[in-house]
């Protein structure tokens, strides 16, 4: 009896060790794999830039931003801003993701911002229109803050991944006049290019109306589907529908194994950019899903192209 108990206890200890090692292995691998694509962006010399966290945009905690600045302000110089927007399905994520991207730009002599926006609770209160408005406001507030600190920003680019990629496209395309400085280009990864509900698996009018209501914050019922107002509401949050002749050059990356964002959406954006003659580049990550984690060579290609966009479209230039 006692021997049996001892054996059971030992088996439990072994099971606990197995589970603990499993969790540790999972977490360690996750940390390594997720950080891997950002190795190229790593800045070894932290003295090249400064970062101020949690600056206020509109007084709310959900819209704070982090500001990355080159170490020393050149009062006579003009600066370019890279405006980073985090992903997370519009319901999660945090501006802390910007720590993987923004130091790279600041160390090269640009200003960078990583902005939060009020996340959706699925009830339509926080939606793509409110997120867009908050981000535009933050861009304006951040540029003013930069000026106060001696960094005169004269141009900007938007960037982000997933939901952040979509919002980066919206901020760049929707109303450039609402931004404090001209947008020169946008570069994004795996951002949804359209919110046509059928492309998101909605097959009934009630589902279509609920989906569009949730994403836009406007109230639609099944009988509204197909109306002008309904379509206009979809279009104003769909980057592909916002592309016109004046749209800015666009760098995009997508993975065909993406199971989060329907893979067909990107073609709407490609077609719109083609139709309006907007310069754009698409880098496909053929072995990757939504995280773009399966193609290190394409990751490098994306960063190289990003540097090319910076050199080509930013008028202020960047340090080598």
């Amino acid at each position: 009896m006692r021997k049996g108990l001892k054996r059971a206890g030992f088996a439990l200890v072994c099971a606990a060790l197995f589970a603990a090692a499993g969790v540790a292995g999972f977490m360690a691998t996750m940390a390594v794999e997720v950080a891997e694509p950002y190795r190229y962006l790593k800045v070894d010399d932290a003295s090249l830039y400064t970062v101020d966290h949690d600056l206020e945009s509109d007084g709310r905690d959900t819209t704070r931003y982090d500001l990355y600045l080159p170490a020393e302000a050149d009062e006579s110089g003009d600066y370019s801003l890279v405006f980073y927007i985090h992903g997370g399905g519009f319901t999660g994520g945090d501006k802390a993701d910007g720590d993987l991207w923004c130091p790279y730009f600041a160390a090269k002599g640009m200003v960078a911002v990583s902005a939060n926006y009020t996340l959706s609770q699925g009830d339509g209160v926080a939606n793509l229109n409110t997120m867009y408005a908050e981000l535009v406001r933050t861009a304006n507030v951040a540029v003013e803050e930069c000026a106060r600190r001696g960094y005169r920003v004269t141009e900007m680019a938007t960037t982000g991944g997933s939901a952040g990629g979509c919002l980066a496209l919206l901020v760049a395309y929707r109303d450039p006049g609402a931004l404090p400085v001209p947008v020169r280009f946008v570069f994004e990864q795996t951002g949804p290019a359209s919110f046509e509900p059928d492309l998101w698996g909605q097959t009934e009018d009630a589902g279509r109306a609920a989906f569009v209501s949730m994403m836009t914050g406007r109230s639609f019922e099944a009988q509204d589907v197909g109306t002008e107002a309904y379509q206009a509401a979809i279009d104003e949050i769909s980057p592909a529908a916002l592309v016109d002749d004046g749209a800015v050059p666009t760098l995009m990356a997508y993975g065909p194994k993406d199971k989060v964002v329907p893979v067909a959406l990107k073609y709407l954006l490609f077609d719109a950019l083609d139709a309006h003659g907007v310069p754009h580049d698409y880098i496909e990550f053929p072995h990757s899903g939504h995280g773009l984690l399966g193609d290190p060579d394409r990751t490098q290609e994306f960063y190289d192209k990003m540097d090319e966009y910076i050199a080509t479209y930013f008028e202020n230039g960047a340090d080598a």
């Binding site: 030992f10 197995f18 499993g22 540790a24 199971k259 989060v260």
Partner: peptide, 30 residues
């Protein structure tokens, strides 16, 4: 005692391998 330690070490190693494999499967699915 020594046999117990060996069994425990094997459990730790097997757990770690399973964790790494599970993470890769998860990331590929994502």
């Amino acid at each position: 005692m020594r046999r117990k330690l060996v069994v425990m070490a094997v459990c730790v190693a097997a757990g770690a391998v399973c964790g790494i494999l599970a993470c890769n499967v998860f990331l590929n699915a994502f």
